[in-house]
Design a protein around this nucleic acid. Sequence first.
DNA 1: ACTCCACAGGAATAACCGGGCG
DNA 2: CGCCCGGTTATTCCTGTGGAGT
Length: 412
Amino acid sequence: MVSMFDDHLKNLLNSIKNGKTLIKDRNVLHFSYFPDNILHRQDEQEKVLQSLSPILKGSRPSNLLIYGKPGTGKTLVVKKILKLIIDNIKTNKFPIKLVYTNSKDEMTLYGLLVSLGSQLGIKSKKPLQNNEDWIPKTGLSISMVFNIIIKTIIKNNFNTVFVIDEIDNLADLISKTGKDILYQLTRANERIIHGSLTIIGISNDLTFKERLDPRVISSLSEEEIIFPNYNVHQLKEILIERIKQAFIPNSVEDSALNLCSALAGREHGDARRAIDLLRVAGEIAEREQSNMVKQYHIKSAYKKMEEDKEVTAIKSYSLHEKLLILSVLKAKKFYTGEIYAIYKEFCKKISQKELTQRRVTQILSELELSGMINGRIISQGIHGRTKKYTSSISYQTIINTLKNDTIFCDIL
DNA sequence: ACTCCACAGGAATAACCGGGCG
DNA sequence: CGCCCGGTTATTCCTGTGGAGT
């Protein structure tokens, strides 16, 4: 990311200039950082290890489905246990293959299978010997790739564990492409005489299971582990641990720490967000040349992150939805009729065809559902029944978001 | 008690759009 | 390439409604 690097340069420049810096190791605060010690996930680590333990004795572990909200340490725990097992493989006489993939990185099911294949040692280029199996980057049907993988597992007697992170991403693809591939994947053992294949699915979405074929559910979730959210107290300890490594000593005020964990805990108990918040606050404090991260640094970091969220949300809306958000902000009395009139004005100014009022009310309630605006039905007797909308977004945020869009320049 | 405003929001239907398939 | 299909978006038509004013 360019902006992150720019920030880094800026900070470096600052610290060179007057030697004042708060963060000594930025990486510790990055989401990809892998802590040595995972706090408050002892139970989960144990359960994952238990579930996988048969592999150390050469038999097949059950398929495993792991649930939990974002930032509850799912990926971290699984990766750690995988590493633990790999480190113990040397002393083991069974060939074990542990494979990790993230469905966000591989956009297609095909890509996912290729990734699995290559990590099993299947070449993606044509090998010299003609009889050796290989998977080209494109061209084969999914079921053929699948068969090659199965064949390889059998031939080498591999005990395979295949981790699919963010598996809910795949669910949408699967419903289109190969409906039964996930089913085949989870049931592959019935075809594997030597070796085994175990699937570990990691899902952020707690309702993910409902969207699956019941046959897949029963085979995929032979075992389940649910990762609970962190509470405020736990978040605080996690933050303390990170602060120790990332910040120079005594550079984070106690009250700031408390606020940080309270804010993150109130939201979702998301450790990633808590750490992000801390990082942004730290950067703000450094930029101000403050010698400590104080409460108000956390506050402004929180505000900044909220604003960023709003900006990206606004950007993702369609033209008419943006126009309506703008109309709500421009309105004085906030009634649907007035909003619609303003919206029509806007449409005329930028020569767009206006939508019906019916459609507009529908969009408004969609926007309400997504939290961009708030609506409340009010009755005014003889003046009819309508809905009053307010918006929590600041006008400035909207303008900053839309000012680069040439379509909006006439409206300002 | 009755009226009547200014919409909300349901139902049916049409227009549109992107992807798969012969 | 045209065709069809499923999904989304938008329109048309409609019925329903809380309460101020009378």
